[in-house]
């Protein structure tokens, strides 16, 4: 036979086009709108922080593979780029380079590679880095530049809406009075508020969510459930006492709820595998976020909430089985 040899393999003989590099590319594209808003608001600082973070994360993964694990570098799968972007999204845009470097090393080194690389890490790497930085450099991590597009790297800094709220309430002021000092909900929605790089605009993040749902990269279960949980729970408290608790819309639009629900909690590796599990996980994230925000010491609790729920994922995966066919009793 002149023909070259036939290939033989077990079925199936065709495969979906949505492979890991494709998925990662899709997530990166979904993050672009939020990044653009951030660049618009913070100018060069956003570009600088994001660029460095991606560079350090990918570099860390490459170096760890090459020199420590002595295996083929795995950065081509794109997951290090996402970790870098997410880390940048979770920090202020005026963070000095050495803090970004430390954050990247912790994210990739401790958060991911120490467990065996992509797929084996129990906690979201970017959040591990973020929380590490928050605990180690509390001042740098909480002095957010204000949302004015400045093309220089220094700008005025201030607190986030959530921070203003928390401090105000501690000082004995009421919510309606505090609300007077804040931008409008439309401003929150389109991203004119202080805060971390990626959590500026709910609108931009929702575009990203829409894109990921359209590409079938993620399902609706985690983001929708988590946002709904935060909304409902803060709504209940608001209903009880609107002078002590802010409105549910305020809670959903400010801080990291959108970013967390759309990009952090949905991370494949650190979220449950079944739909039932995803919903349970997302409810947990939402409840913990609200509890930390309303009653905890920190003004914001999304990172901690997701990290705590990450720890429950193996348990959820083991005990929440999907509905089996033909095994109804």
């Amino acid at each position: 036979m002149s023909q070259s040899l036939l290939t033989v393999a077990p079925s199936p003989h065709i495969h979906t086009e949505l492979t890991i590099p494709q998925v990662m590319r899709g997530v990166i594209i979904a993050m672009v709108p939020a990044l653009l808003v951030s660049v618009y608001n913070f100018g060069l600082g956003a570009v600088y922080v994001t660029g460095l973070s991606i560079l350090f994360c990918a570099g860390a993964e490459w170096a760890i593979c090459k020199f420590l694990l002595k295996r083929e570098p795995t950065i081509t799968d794109g997951s290090a780029v996402i970790t870098g972007m997410l880390l940048a999204f979770n920090v202020p845009s005026n963070l000095p380079w050495y803090i970004i470097l430390i954050g990247s090393l912790v994210s990739v080194g401790i958060g991911k590679m120490s467990f065996g690389g992509l797929g084996n890490n129990p906690f979201n790497p970017a959040l591990v880095g973020r929380v590490f930085l928050l605990l180690s450099f509390p001042v740098e991590m909480t002095s957010w530049p204000q949302a004015v597009a400045t093309w220089s790297l220094d700008g005025t800094t201030g607190a986030t809406p959530l921070g203003i709220l928390k401090d105000g309430l501690r000082a004995g002021e009421t919510v309606p009075a505090l609300m007077q000092q804040m931008p409008s909900y439309t401003d929150f929605f389109f991203g004119f508020q202080g805060g971390s790089l990626g959590e500026m605009s709910a609108f931009a993040l929702l575009i990203g969510l829409g894109y990921m749902l359209y590409r079938k990269i993620i399902t609706w279960h985690i983001p929708v459930t988590m946002i709904a949980t935060v909304f409902v729970m803060t709504g209940i408290f608001w209903f009880i006492d609107p002078t002590r608790f802010a409105s549910p819309l305020f809670h959903v639009l400010t801080g990291g709820v959108m970013l967390g629900a759309i990009f952090m909690a949905t991370d494949y590796v650190t979220s449950p595998v079944s739909h039932k599990g995803m919903i349970l996980f997302a409810i947990g994230c939402g409840v913990l976020t609200v509890l930390i925000r309303l009653f905890g010491a920190y003004p914001e609790g999304v990172s901690f909430a997701i990290l705590i729920m990450n720890a429950f994922v193996p348990l959820i995966n083991t005990y929440l089985k999907p509905v089996r066919y033909g095994r109804k009793k």
């Binding site: 290939t7 393999a9 003989h13 065709i14 495969h15 492979t19 890991i20 998925v23 799968d77 065996g116 690389g117 992509l118 797929g119 084996n120 399902t219 494949y268 590796v269 979220s271 449950p272 595998v273 079944s274 739909h275 995803m278 995966n317 089985k321 999907p322 509905v323 089996r324 066919y325 033909g326 095994r327």
Partner: peptide, 25 residues
């Protein structure tokens, strides 16, 4: 079209569970 491509670690995305018509993992 048919050649198998590079294999990665399982990322626990849950797509196989979503796809399984028998409700297995």
């Amino acid at each position: 079209e048919t050649k198998r491509t590079e294999e990665y670690n399982c990322v626990h995305c849950g797509k196989c569970i979503e796809a399984c018509p028998m409700g297995l993992e």
